[in-house]
Measured scan of single mutants.
Amino acid sequence: NKFNKELQWATWEILNLPNLNEEQVKAFIDSLRDDPSQSANLLAEAKKLNDAQA
């Protein structure tokens, strides 16, 4: 389904953001699992944090 694909994509993207530490990655992945419908928003937040920590 749509959420499953978005969840998989967001998870992959977050795992590959180079500037997030392990705790941050875990927190984003946990949030994705808690509410897959928020995957686009969570991915945007993760990318923003990744850029800020570059």
Score class of each variant (00 low, 15 high):
residue 40 A to S: 12
residue 42 L to F: 07
residue 50 N to S: 12
residue 38 Q to Y: 06
residue 2 K to N: 15
residue 26 K to G: 06
residue 4 N to A: 04
residue 6 E to M: 03
residue 47 K to G: 06
residue 50 N to G: 02
residue 52 A to R: 11
residue 26 K to Q: 09
residue 17 L to G: 00
residue 13 E to P: 02
residue 21 N to H: 08
residue 43 L to N: 01
residue 39 S to R: 04
residue 7 L to P: 04
residue 9 W to G: 05
residue 40 A to E: 10
residue 8 Q to V: 09
residue 32 L to D: 00
residue 44 A to F: 13
residue 10 A to R: 02
residue 42 L to H: 05
residue 51 D to S: 14
residue 17 L to R: 00
residue 22 E to M: 11
residue 6 E to Q: 04
residue 42 L to I: 12
residue 41 N to A: 05
residue 27 A to S: 14
residue 2 K to H: 15
residue 12 W to T: 15
residue 3 F to G: 10
residue 3 F to L: 08
residue 42 L to S: 03
residue 33 R to T: 14
residue 6 E to N: 04
residue 30 D to F: 07
residue 33 R to I: 14
residue 23 E to L: 06
residue 22 E to Q: 12
residue 10 A to F: 15
residue 37 S to Y: 09
residue 37 S to G: 08
residue 23 E to Y: 13
residue 52 A to W: 11
residue 53 Q to R: 02
residue 11 T to G: 03
residue 48 K to Y: 11
residue 44 A to P: 02
residue 4 N to V: 04
residue 10 A to N: 03
residue 10 A to W: 04
residue 34 D to A: 14
residue 49 L to K: 06
residue 5 K to H: 11
residue 27 A to Q: 05
residue 54 A to R: 01
residue 18 P to F: 06
residue 6 E to I: 06
residue 24 Q to W: 02
residue 21 N to Y: 10
residue 9 W to E: 15
residue 6 E to K: 03
residue 42 L to Y: 08
residue 39 S to Q: 08
residue 46 A to E: 00
residue 43 L to G: 01
residue 2 K to D: 15
residue 51 D to K: 14
residue 16 N to V: 05
residue 20 L to S: 00
residue 18 P to G: 10
residue 32 L to G: 01
residue 6 E to D: 13
residue 34 D to Q: 11
residue 27 A to V: 11
residue 1 N to T: 04
residue 22 E to Y: 09
residue 53 Q to E: 06
residue 54 A to I: 10
residue 6 E to R: 01
residue 33 R to K: 14
residue 22 E to A: 13
residue 1 N to S: 02
residue 45 E to T: 09
residue 32 L to S: 01
residue 30 D to H: 13
residue 51 D to E: 12
residue 11 T to W: 08
residue 15 L to Q: 15
residue 14 I to E: 01
residue 15 L to E: 13
residue 5 K to I: 07
residue 37 S to K: 07
residue 23 E to R: 11
residue 2 K to T: 15
residue 5 K to A: 13
residue 53 Q to N: 06
residue 45 E to A: 08
residue 53 Q to K: 03
residue 11 T to F: 13
residue 46 A to F: 02
residue 51 D to V: 07
residue 54 A to D: 12
residue 9 W to S: 08
residue 39 S to H: 15
residue 36 P to I: 08
residue 39 S to I: 15
residue 51 D to T: 08
residue 7 L to E: 12
residue 43 L to H: 03
residue 31 S to T: 12
residue 23 E to N: 12
residue 22 E to D: 13
residue 35 D to Q: 08
residue 22 E to K: 06
residue 11 T to A: 06
residue 14 I to S: 01
residue 18 P to K: 09
residue 2 K to F: 10
residue 34 D to F: 14
residue 18 P to V: 07
residue 13 E to H: 10
residue 2 K to R: 06
residue 33 R to N: 14
residue 40 A to R: 13
residue 31 S to A: 10
residue 28 F to G: 00
residue 18 P to A: 13
residue 17 L to D: 00
residue 5 K to L: 05
residue 42 L to V: 15
residue 34 D to W: 10
residue 33 R to P: 01
residue 31 S to E: 09
residue 39 S to K: 09
residue 22 E to T: 11
residue 35 D to T: 07
residue 11 T to L: 15
residue 23 E to W: 14
residue 24 Q to K: 02
residue 19 N to W: 04
residue 30 D to P: 00
residue 1 N to M: 02
residue 21 N to V: 08
residue 26 K to A: 12
residue 27 A to K: 14
residue 11 T to I: 12
residue 24 Q to Y: 02
residue 28 F to P: 00
residue 6 E to T: 04
residue 47 K to M: 15
residue 24 Q to T: 05
residue 14 I to A: 01
residue 42 L to G: 01
residue 43 L to S: 04
residue 1 N to G: 06
residue 38 Q to A: 04
residue 25 V to I: 08
residue 35 D to M: 07
residue 41 N to W: 11
residue 8 Q to F: 07
residue 38 Q to E: 13
residue 39 S to D: 02
residue 16 N to S: 10
residue 46 A to H: 00
residue 25 V to N: 02
residue 4 N to W: 15
residue 29 I to S: 03
residue 45 E to G: 05
residue 29 I to Q: 04
residue 30 D to R: 09
residue 10 A to I: 10
residue 52 A to V: 11
residue 44 A to E: 11
residue 27 A to I: 13
residue 8 Q to M: 06
residue 13 E to Q: 14
residue 33 R to Q: 11
residue 27 A to N: 07
residue 7 L to I: 09
residue 33 R to F: 15
residue 40 A to Y: 14
residue 41 N to K: 11
residue 19 N to A: 07
residue 11 T to Y: 09
residue 20 L to V: 02
residue 25 V to H: 08
residue 17 L to W: 02
residue 3 F to E: 08
residue 48 K to E: 15
residue 48 K to R: 13
residue 35 D to S: 11
residue 7 L to Q: 10
residue 22 E to V: 13
residue 39 S to V: 15
residue 31 S to F: 09
residue 35 D to G: 04
residue 37 S to F: 10
residue 38 Q to M: 08
residue 54 A to P: 07
residue 23 E to D: 13
residue 39 S to G: 07
residue 53 Q to W: 03
residue 11 T to E: 05
residue 8 Q to E: 15
residue 9 W to F: 14
residue 29 I to K: 04
residue 32 L to E: 00
residue 52 A to L: 13
residue 54 A to K: 04
residue 44 A to S: 12
residue 19 N to Q: 05
residue 37 S to E: 08
residue 17 L to A: 01
residue 20 L to N: 00
residue 10 A to L: 13
residue 20 L to H: 00
residue 48 K to H: 08
residue 20 L to K: 00
residue 12 W to A: 15
residue 22 E to G: 10
residue 20 L to R: 00
residue 18 P to R: 02
residue 34 D to T: 11
residue 18 P to E: 13
residue 47 K to F: 12
residue 19 N to E: 04
residue 14 I to H: 01
residue 29 I to T: 06
residue 35 D to Y: 06
residue 39 S to M: 15
residue 15 L to R: 14
residue 31 S to W: 05
residue 39 S to L: 15
residue 6 E to V: 05
residue 33 R to E: 10
residue 32 L to F: 04
residue 4 N to H: 11
residue 24 Q to M: 04
